[in-house]
Design a binder for these strands. Sequence first.
DNA 1: ACAACTTCTTGATCTAGGTCAATTTCCGGT
DNA 2: ACCGGAAATTGACCTAGATCAAGAAGTTGT
Lengths: 228, 228
Amino acid sequence: MTCSLQELCLPRGLYGHDLERLDALVERQGPHHEGDHLFRIGDKFGAIYAVRAGSYKSYTVDSEGREHVLGFHLPGELLGLDAIYPGHHVCNALALDTATVCILPYTQLSTLASQISGLFTQIMRLMSKDISDTATLAGDFTAEERLAAFLVGLSERFRLRGYSPNEFNLAMSRRDIANYLRLATETVSRVFARFEKDGLIAVDRRDVRLLNLPRLRTLCESMGNPQH
Amino acid sequence: MTCSLQELCLPRGLYGHDLERLDALVERQGPHHEGDHLFRIGDKFGAIYAVRAGSYKSYTVDSEGREHVLGFHLPGELLGLDAIYPGHHVCNALALDTATVCILPYTQLSTLASQISGLFTQIMRLMSKDISDTATLAGDFTAEERLAAFLVGLSERFRLRGYSPNEFNLAMSRRDIANYLRLATETVSRVFARFEKDGLIAVDRRDVRLLNLPRLRTLCESMGNPQH
DNA sequence: ACAACTTCTTGATCTAGGTCAATTTCCGGT
DNA sequence: ACCGGAAATTGACCTAGATCAAGAAGTTGT
């Protein structure tokens, strides 16, 4: 069976028999509903997950009980790569809406990767991408820069998936966005309002339209190559 | 030839013939002197580097010319993993003191990794570790928490390498530390002073002694599992 | 041994964004 | 349609850390 996300996900660059062999070890899971956990901290690591539909957030809870959102995961993106090293999951992942995943059992995957060189390469590429992406958020950036980068990044990711890069729906709450960007929800609210007043975006609840993508890009260009 | 860092680095878990095959493709480079570049942004990606001796820092320069320190790299640690995905280096790396590296040509490495399953596993583990580590710094942490985590992290890394975890020399300037922790140099200076006044550390220029590691750990435990 | 740098420290303000508090808006359940 | 609770917005204040400015302490070269 051929997945429509082939070009974004692990199978990229695989064809014919190799693709079939990868396909044979993939299981599907879901649908998960909003709030369902895909995995939790401490769960034994056994598989990498690829989002098929919907979206997930990954997060940790620190010793004081504060939640820290680590990332949002759209279709075609992988989850669980950080668990390989310690052998158990180091964050929680839950569905933000109705969502499904492919399960890629790690042992079988690594056996296959040693037989199909294109698969090895693709895994390395995706992990490498993860390493550079995580760096993006660290930094002494202003609230404007952070939110602009967030919106531009989402826009890019939607575009890659064939959706409109200018108009989309946020699966996550203001609180989640704020937490992810390391800001207070109030600040996120205020910056949304400011962006709207300045004609950069139009926002109604969780529906966002980017009215001036070039200026948003300018705002966050100091954060390094914004996205991908 | 057997490297003393074997247990920290790629060869981990490899023995006999497999180890020889890996060894055969490794080249040495250096010594680099303080300020020498190992690679620069935009350089074509061709190899992964493993630090043998001394230390390196990796950094970017944003569109406004500001430098952003991404990390410090001690013996046994890998550099350049983030370049696999885009195919060219996305940060600069320079030596902080007299330092040498092993060069692992990527094409040959990936061929070998598909033949030696232990090597594949080890590469995945190290990349996975990189992914979790980068997450550590992002967060709304106080200057105290950041510096404490930095010191505790270094202490761990020195301990793993057989050096004293309680007394070590900083290869990097206050300015680099500040930049890495996303603080002003003045703030770093002040927090060093405060830690010393509170009896947590003794610091003389770049020589640091950790006098109260448990309390330092407490200070930064909210930043998630501090290290490794 | 001195000058010219650079790095580090210390002190005095300033400000972005956090915190606290009060509404307003939305949504799901009965 | 109504109620209750969460989510989001808006306003008033308040701190951590940046910025500005000055000086101390190393370092390097001649």
